[in-house]
């Protein structure tokens, strides 16, 4: 039977030390759709999506309660290898973070650590993912140059390409356009719509228009709680909760 739910969070509480960052979050991320997560700064959006690929394992003194399932499998069960989860659930961060290596190596690295050995295959996949990330035309002449010489928007698309190369099933974007100009932002939004065909996507954003443009479903977080979640169209036209309405219309105190 086809299960439309890719990732399921059930009653998730999360603490940094004794400060609670997430309170009883339950939500589904549907397969093949874009889920936007919106909410004011500090409400726990990053914390939440960083749980989905176990990036918060790296933060000391944290406590998690509840469950997160990836295709029915509890990703926090002791039998699960976090490395394996991160292979299946890729992430693009708020600030572009290319490795201090060449453009080519930035992408080849992910392939190599995932067991690719054949240089031809690696080369082929590097080119393919650069094309997918709409960066190929701009860098095809200088694949051996340092990735740090690229502009911010190009670096972010390189990070997306790097993530796509290892073929994850889910893509997590944490404010991918936060440090980009409108043109780069438009390019990345276009890209997300393109990627939707092949991946399940979750995107954190502060930009209401962006959420409206790229997402199918939207979740509104406030102070660590999930206030409301539903079809993007509904959330933006007829929110059920007063607080959601206040936030999306910009009347938030």
């Amino acid at each position: 039977m086809f299960d439309p739910v890719k990732i399921k969070a059930q009653h998730v509480d999360f603490f940094y030390g004794n400060q609670q960052a997430l309170k009883d979050i339950s939500m589904d991320i549907d397969v093949g759709r874009v889920t936007a997560i919106i909410g004011p700064s500090g409400c726990g959006k990053s914390t939440f999506i960083r749980l989905l690929n176990r990036m918060n394992d790296l933060v000391a003194h944290t406590v998690l309660r509840g469950h997160i399932y990836l295709e029915g499998q509890d990703i926090f069960s002791p039998a699960v290898d976090p490395v394996e989860i991160r292979r299946r659930v890729g992430m693009v961060f708020q600030k572009p973070n290319p490795f201090p290596k060449s453009i080519f190596e930035n992408i080849a690295y992910g392939l190599e650590v995932n067991g690719y050995r054949d240089r031809d295959v690696i080369e082929e996949r590097v080119v393919m993912s650069l094309k997918k990330a709409a960066l190929w035309e701009e860098v095809k002449e200088r694949l051996r140059d340092s990735a740090l010489k690229l502009s911010g928007g190009q670096q972010q698309r390189l990070c997306i390409a790097r993530c796509l190369a290892v073929a994850p099933e889910v893509l997590l974007f944490d404010e991918p356009c936060a440090s980009l100009d409108p043109i780069s932002t438009a390019k990345i939004e276009e890209l997300i719509l393109e990627l939707k065909k092949d991946y399940t996507i979750a995107i954190v954003t502060h930009n209401m228009q962006q959420a409206a443009r790229v997402s199918d479903r939207t979740a509104f977080f406030l102070l660590g709680e999930l206030v409301e979640m539903g079809e993007t169209q509904h959330i933006f036209t007829a929110p059920k909760d007063k607080r959601t309405e206040a936030y999306i219309t910009g009347r938030f105190g």
């Binding site: 690929n53 990036m55 790296l58 490395v83 394996e84 991160r86 292979r87 890729g90 992430m91 961060f93 600030k95 973070n97 290319p98 490795f99 201090p100 290596k101 690295y109 992910g110 190599e112 650590v113 995932n114 990070c159 790097r162 993530c163 290892v166």
Partner: peptide, 26 residues
């Protein structure tokens, strides 16, 4: 920078791969 360690781990690299291939060269 911590951010490139995270980038490496997020690609499914192990901690040792991250240290040997990303952190040490940097």
């Amino acid at each position: 920078p911590h951010s490139i360690r995270e980038a490496s781990l997020a690609l499914g690299a192990t901690q040792w791969q991250t240290i040997r291939r990303i952190v040490l060269p940097a």
